[in-house]
Computed example of a mutant assay.
Amino acid sequence: MAMAMARKISKEEIVEKLKDDGDFDRLRLKIIRRLKDNEELRNNMISVVKESTALNRPGAQNMKTRQLSDAIFEEVGSKMLSQLSDGLWGIIRSEEGMKNEIRETVQSVYATLSNPGGEKCRLPEHKIRTPVPGGETSSCPVSKQKQELIHGRVEESKGEACSDEEDPELPPGFA
């Protein structure tokens, strides 16, 4: 008996599906909200601007808003962008930040692409309990029987979709 060859899922397909389903925008907005809510980062940036020589030089109060803004950005822009970048990556990579949610979303999309025509492995609101590394699960209002069925399908599809060289726990590009 010949077993059907599993189709290799590319990184581009996963990213395209994330964009098409709105997952990318949803995650991006959550990250931006968390960045905006970072009081320490906000206070650091306010302090940098208040201490800038462009803001404190004689005649600064007579400058047009755009001119003053450009002068401040020219002086401290790279420092502020660096702080923003560090804050952003901190949110994306931290366990308390978005790391697990991003991983779960990507794994769910990968499982869906790996098992076309099979049982759907996710709901639009991403609330189905799906296994994640470390034995954790995401919460959802789905029956225990449905969870076990989905878990079985996800595990089956992982085995079929991955070659021997790949880690079956991670979609392409996330090793």
Rank of each mutant, 00 (worst) to 15 (best):
A54D: 05
L68I: 05
S85N: 13
S94P: 08
G118I: 01
E95A: 09
S78K: 13
F174Q: 08
S85F: 11
E148L: 14
T130V: 15
R103S: 01
M1T: 11
D167H: 07
E104Q: 12
I150W: 04
E13R: 01
F24I: 05
S47P: 03
G87I: 10
I9T: 13
E155C: 02
A111N: 12
K120D: 12
D164F: 09
I9E: 02
M5K: 12
S52C: 06
G87M: 10
P116G: 02
I150H: 00
E155P: 03
I72C: 03
R122A: 09
G90L: 00
I46G: 01
K8G: 00
T137G: 05
G90Y: 03
M3S: 11
N56W: 03
E13L: 00
K99Q: 12
E166N: 04
E75G: 11
I102D: 02
N38K: 07
I32M: 12
G77M: 06
K64H: 08
A60Q: 01
R103C: 00
E166P: 06
K120N: 09
D37Y: 04
L149H: 05
L68K: 01
G152E: 14
E155F: 10
E165N: 09
P131D: 08
P131V: 02
K36A: 13
I150D: 00
I72A: 03
L55P: 06
R57V: 04
E95S: 14
L113D: 06
V109F: 06
L84E: 01
C121E: 00
M98V: 02
K50M: 12
I102F: 11
K17D: 09
N43K: 14
N44C: 05
D70R: 14
S10E: 08
H151M: 07
A6R: 07
W89T: 10
L81F: 01
P171I: 02
S163Y: 06
A4N: 08
S85M: 06
H126D: 14
A2Y: 11
V132Q: 11
E101S: 07
V154M: 15
S69M: 13
R129Y: 10
A71D: 14
K19V: 14
E155H: 11
G134H: 04
K11R: 15
D164H: 09
T53Q: 08
D70H: 07
N38H: 08
T53L: 00
E148T: 10
A71G: 03
F73Y: 09
I102S: 06
